[in-house]
């Protein structure tokens, strides 16, 4: 009936106790991180918003937007926009193979067109959804050596047609956006892996009966906060007791058999990184942080 009965049956060293302590420590840690977490807005979209706003300003254009390719639907989805109808543009999806944006996306080649509003053949998907029909349009791929991930569009230059210099400048903004998106995807993919591992740990370690049932569980909220904290590179106060608990959790990770060994290894590394972040600054320089 009690956990000590179960522990005794496994050899008398109460194997769940360490994990329970770790879970408890993680719960406490998660609560402490909550305040810092609230200070961290979703970075990627804010960065992309800033990029489109700056691109429109620098190129003296009415509007700009960024659409990212969604491999699941094979469509381009607008995630950031500045200018008239910006609110309506974000969230819109267009065919990834047609139109000026589709060409820039597919070919990786920047281009600009003029007088699109006068041409009935212009792809009007976005125009019809927003009521905003551009006269001139520039499209630059978001690309790096790993491929093309989306398109930056700049609409309606205030003075004449877009120039080759405008294409160069837009390409630089697109490059910046690509870096931001790639970084956020690494973070997001990492978050997915870490989360699934922690969920598996929570399932393994969740006490269901006895006095441990009242211990702080590694619940969804705690996992969320832990994942974000691990990836946001947050500075955490030193706490030797919690440090020991995290090491214990890392140790337990290594013993899990129903979790992919690679996931265990990756999660273990994150926990290690998290632990290092927890260490007092000491003599180690923290320059390079923002």
């Amino acid at each position: 009936m009690t956990s000590s009965d179960e522990g005794g049956s496994r050899g008398g060293i109460e194997p769940d106790a360490t994990a329970t302590a770790a879970v408890s420590a993680l719960g406490a840690l998660a609560r402490r991180l909550a305040a810092a977490e609230r200070l961290e807005p979703p970075r990627r979209d804010a960065e992309l918003d800033a990029i489109v706003a700056t691109a429109a300003l620098v190129l003296d254009a009415q509007a700009a937007s960024i659409a990212l390719h969604d491999p699941a639907t094979d469509r381009l989805r607008f995630v950031a926009a500045a200018g008239p109808s910006a609110g309506e543009v974000v969230g819109l999806e267009i065919d990834a193979t047609a139109g000026i944006a589709g060409f820039a996306f597919g070919s990786g080649q920047p281009l600009a067109v003029t007088d699109v509003s006068a041409d009935p053949r212009f792809d009007r998907t976005v125009a019809e959804a927003t009521g905003y029909v551009p006269g001139t349009l520039l499209a630059v791929p978001l690309a790096d050596a790993a491929g093309v991930i989306g398109v930056l569009e700049v609409l309606d230059r205030r003075d004449g047609s877009f120039t080759m210099h405008d294409l160069d400048v837009a390409a630089a903004f697109a490059n910046q956006a690509t870096v931001a998106v790639r970084a956020s995807r690494v973070g997001r993919d990492a978050a997915t892996v870490l989360r699934s591992t922690l969920v598996a740990i929570a399932r393994e370690t969740a006490p269901t009966t006895g006095r441990d049932a009242v211990a702080t569980p590694l619940d969804d909220e705690a996992i969320d906060l832990l994942v974000r904290a691990a990836l946001a590179d947050l500075r955490i106060d030193a706490d030797t007791e919690a440090d020991a608990s995290i090491w214990a959790l890392a140790d337990r990770l290594a013993r899990l058999r129903d979790v992919d060994p690679e996931l265990v290894a990756v999660a273990g590394e994150w926990l290690d990184v998290l632990l290092r972040r927890r260490a007092p600054a000491g003599g180690r320089s923290r320059t390079g942080r923002r």
Partner: peptide
């Protein structure tokens, strides 16, 4: 020549376009 070029486009149309690809 690749800036503001009057080029053939889809569906029998034409468009003014800019880019190294022209």
């Amino acid at each position: 020549y690749g800036v503001d070029v009057d080029v053939a486009w889809r569906d029998g149309g034409r468009i003014r376009a800019t880019g190294n690809s022209f």
